[in-house]
Simulated assay, not measured.
Amino acid sequence: MTKAIQSSVQVGELATGHALTVPLFSFSGSNSSAPSVYIQANVHGAEVQGNAVIYQLMTLLEGYQVLGDIRFAPLANPLGINQKSGEFTLGRFDPITGVNWNREYFDHQVDVDAWYSDHQHLTNDGLFLAYRSMLVEACRARLDNPFGISTGHRLAVSLQTMAHQADIVLDLHTGPKSCKHLYCPEYDIDAARFFSIPYTLIIPNSFGGAMDEAIFCPWWQLTQYALSQGREFSVPVSAFTLELASQERIDLADALEDAKGILAYLSYRGVIANKINPAKMVRFGCYLRDYKKFHAPKAGLVEYCAAVGKPLTAGQPLVNILRMDLYGSEQVYQAISFPMDCVPILHFASASVHQGTELYKVMTKVFAIPST
């Protein structure tokens, strides 16, 4: 039986002087040539379901033959997790700067032309090793910036340093009120058929601030530049964000299904020796440019009519808005619809909204993803 080794990593210090730490669990693989994996969860305080998925993954891995090293970082943001207000967990934004915790990662902005010119004599394996070392050292240098860095940026770069040391990176999140969906880079869309997730957002191969982009973008840039110089290889590192339904929720049975989907992908990649087949399900995709936000046309109390994960025909009710201040007039109750066919993916958690609140995110121009 394979057992996880527990440790921790310091990601900052509290005002009291106490160390701010994140627990780590590691499985050592038996094959040094197998891909290595880094999986984190709970970067946003209320998004706890990823911890249940990690629990199920570690439990299952104890009975499997692990070939590649796997590192888990549950409870990845102790500051956000402990940011409570009454019965609610806030923890989406750094309370010091107001920045989204998942937008504080380091944009390397590698001068790929110059770097490749200095290293093009290396074999592919040597090239990848040198590039990875450069990314890791750049993160460590960032942490040692003589002018210092913000609390949130230090947390993010500490996590990013660990992620850069892996070949496969999974960042586990949830939405407010959400169905499951996967963020997948355009060049790696084939991977979507393994996860137990019905909807996939296909994102550009560029940096937008999130963990997955912080990991795969430098490697995509290296791959494309090498190709322009007549050298061809696949992008060596894969990174995805998995949105595991709604926040403030733990569902261990559902977590087991998502864990099996992750294991199907890890099996396909040769991280574990066991053969795990992906769930038989229809999967759909949408390009990020066709992922639309719907904002409240006016303030009020909102009844969310459209179910997440269910196709919605143009003209069907999306929300009903109740305005008690307009009681006695025709404007007291208004049905609002979306002007085109879509699939609602997530909606705002509260029924009380200001004008301009982002009520829904919906997929449009949805298409089926081949299963093979």
Rank of each mutant, 00 (worst) to 15 (best):
V9D: 07
V11M: 12
G12Y: 01
E13G: 03
L14Y: 13
A15R: 14
A15S: 05
T16C: 11
G17F: 02
H18Y: 10
T21H: 01
T21R: 04
P23H: 07
G29E: 08
V37C: 12
V37Y: 07
V43S: 09
H44L: 03
Q56M: 15
L57Q: 09
T59P: 01
L61R: 01
Y64I: 10
V66G: 14
V66Q: 11
G68H: 04
D69Y: 04
I70V: 00
F72G: 08
N77T: 05
N77K: 06
L79F: 02
G80D: 06
R92K: 15
F93I: 11
D94I: 01
P95V: 03
T97D: 13
R103T: 10
F106S: 04
D107E: 08
V110R: 08
V112Y: 02
V112K: 02
W115R: 12
Y116I: 08
S117E: 14
D118Y: 06
H119C: 12
L122R: 11
T123P: 07
N124H: 13
A130W: 01
A130Q: 00
Y131I: 01
R132D: 02
R132C: 01
V136Q: 10
F147V: 05
G148L: 09
T151F: 15
G152M: 09
G152D: 07
H153N: 04
A156Y: 04
V157Q: 13
V157D: 11
S158H: 01
T161I: 08
M162L: 15
Q165L: 06
V169D: 02
L172N: 03
H173S: 05
P176Y: 13
P176I: 10
C179M: 09
Y183E: 02
P185Y: 00
D188M: 07
A192I: 14
A192R: 08
F194R: 14
Y199K: 06
Y199M: 11
T200K: 06
N205G: 09
F207D: 04
F207G: 03
A210H: 12
A210L: 06
E213R: 14
I215N: 01
F216A: 02
L222H: 01
L227N: 12
Q229A: 15
G230V: 15
G230L: 10
E232D: 15
F233K: 15
S234Q: 14
S238M: 06
F240G: 02
T241P: 05
E243C: 01
S246H: 07
Q247K: 12
A259G: 03
I262D: 02
L263K: 00
A264P: 07
A264W: 10
Y268V: 07
G270Q: 14
A273N: 05
K275L: 11
N277Y: 06
M281P: 11
Y291S: 02
C305I: 15
A307N: 13
K310N: 00
L312R: 10
Q316A: 03
I321P: 03
L322D: 00
R323L: 06
D325R: 14
L326R: 06
L326E: 04
S329K: 06
E330F: 09
V332D: 07
V332N: 03
Y333D: 10
A335Q: 07
M340T: 13
L346P: 00
H347W: 00
S352I: 14
G356F: 00
T357H: 06
E358P: 09
M363P: 00
M363L: 12
M363F: 08
K365Y: 10
V366D: 11
I369F: 08
